[in-house]
């Protein structure tokens, strides 16, 4: 599922932000043009991709955000909007008027929620207003960036505002060459233990969690994996790391935010999404030859070879090679 960035502007500055490097290198008023948006839509359409995600920055800051969503709906796409939920009264009111009655199977918001105790009051109030209007179309998104994270507040949000009863769990990753907060490799087992505890609690409230990319199978004990399987089911358990394609406001394209400056191309270089996906899959495979996973033991791990686990986020491997002498496959360093 490709991600379209509508704008590089964001209203927050999360400590774990994996888009930081990309945002820092963009013009502050970069927004996606209508013509480019139609081009992307056509490319997806011709490649038979009917599911798309809208991202930012904060996508609702784009002046045509509502029109873009209506347009995609008209073109028979299913849309996920990744938002902070922070928007002006005017935008919220217009969005409510035009999008509130869209069926949940056509439009889904993933509201990226931070701990309200550590967020500014006005930010929390804005999010509450958003969830009051769009709670029924919204799933909570939560990014783990330290091993001693807390998730209780998500239960409050879900119950108070009628959010969908599933949480998208992201794992913050390092950005090669940039300082951001993320769970260090040696902290992963601690993070995993805490996560399984939380999943047991969430289950009591009939809330499921789904893993985004970058989790490792071996971070969990056999017992923990059994618990996860029992509580979440096999579909929600993902230990993958594949090229998630991001399309920028300037029509540049890359695979995953942590690798946004890594082999960035122009979307116009590709005739189809399959060609684009093929390019980055091939590139990732080359990197995996040099660094199969975040641990050395990933090299001959049977679960990685059987593709049950991808060995964690590629950015970890690349990050470890960032300052070394260029002795590996040349594409690693470009």
């Amino acid at each position: 599922m490709p991600n379209i960035l509508l704008t590089d502007k964001c209203v927050r500055s999360c400590p774990y932000c994996f888009a930081k490097k990309h945002m820092n290198s963009s013009e502050p008023d970069d927004t996606l043009r209508w013509e480019d948006f139609i081009y992307i839509t056509d490319l997806l359409d011709s490649s038979r991709h009917r599911i798309v995600s809208l991202l930012g920055g904060e996508p609702t800051l784009h002046p045509h955000f509502i029109d873009f969503v209506i347009y995609l709906l008209e073109r028979q796409f299913r849309i996920t909007v990744f938002t902070s939920g922070i928007m002006s009264e005017k935008m919220l009111s217009e969005a409510s008027a035009h999008l509130n009655n869209v069926p949940p199977e056509r439009l889904n918001f993933v509201c990226n929620l931070n701990d309200p105790k550590k967020s500014p009051f006005s930010e929390v109030e804005n999010i509450k207003k958003f969830l009051t209007v769009f709670g029924h179309l919204t799933s909570a998104g939560f990014n783990i960036y330290k091993p001693d994270f807390e998730m209780e507040f998500l239960i409050d949000y879900i119950n108070s505002y009628g959010l969908k009863r599933n949480i998208r769990l992201g794992l913050a990753h390092p950005i090669p060459g940039v300082k951001n907060s993320y769970v260090k490799i040696d902290e992963m087992p601690k993070m995993a233990e805490r996560l399984v505890d939380y999943i047991k609690v969430l289950d009591k409230f009939h809330i499921k969690a789904g893993f985004d990319c970058g989790f490792l199978l071996c971070h969990f004990t056999e017992e923990q994996l059994g618990t996860l399987f029992k509580l979440l089911g096999p579909q929600a358990l993902s230990f993958g790391c594949g090229p998630a394609l991001d399309i920028g406001t300037d029509m540049s394209v890359w695979s995953c935010f942590p690798l946004s400056n890594y082999h960035k191309k122009s979307l116009y270089d590709f005739n189809s999404m399959d060609e684009l996906m093929g390019y980055y899959t091939n590139l990732h495979n080359k990197i995996r030859v040099e660094a199969s996973g975040i641990y050395e033991k990933c090299d001959d791990c049977r679960y990685r070879l059987e593709r049950l686990c991808m060995g964690g986020c590629l950015a970890h491997g690349l990050s470890s090679m960032h300052d070394e002498e260029p002795t590996r496959h040349k594409e690693i360093y470009i």
Binding site: R33, W34, E35, I38, T41, D42, Y71, E74, R75
Partner: peptide, 10 residues
């Protein structure tokens, strides 16, 4: 010109 493209595409 933008609007013609929009109309055509829908």
């Amino acid at each position: 010109y933008t609007n013609l493209r929009i109309l055509s595409s829908i």
